[in-house]
Amino acid sequence: MLHTIKMTVNGELVKAEVFSQMRLLDFLREELDLIGAKEGCGKGECGACTVLVDGEPVNSCLMLAVEADGKEVLTVEGLGEGDRLDAIQQSIVDNSALQCGYCTPGIVMSAKGLLLRNTNPTRDEVVEAISGNLCRCTGYARVIDAIMQVSASSDSQDEGSER
């Protein structure tokens, strides 16, 4: 069955015709060529496909494109401005918190989702936010550090703007 759907993807309005069975992940990757979200398992276990839907991280392999009709989708390609990386991305780069990088877009989006909702998370909250993102390379510690540092630095920015 074909559906006409409309959604915002990385700030741009997208209109498309999709079959019922098309997953959001396939829609992003195959139709929009947004290949940042990866498929690592197709079953919600690895988190490589994580994107934000209405600001919340979800496994795009477990959601239909038609279910995202009318929603706002943010993928890793939508972060940062021009050449400037988002603070999370920059922190991951600075902390060497990636290796093969396959899990990275998913982790970045999980972190983004966390920091949108909570600018000052505890370490446990960071762990909670990314424990649905499997990474076989890094051992996670640097990833956690990198996300903690973003929240710490956005803190100081806030203080700065108050002064």
Binding site: L34, I35, G36, A37, T75, V76, E77, L79, G80, L85, Q89, I92, V93, S96, L98, C100, G101, T104, P105, V108
Partner: peptide, 8 residues
Amino acid sequence: DAAEKVTG
């Protein structure tokens, strides 16, 4: 390779 990977 970091920038390329972190941006997807």
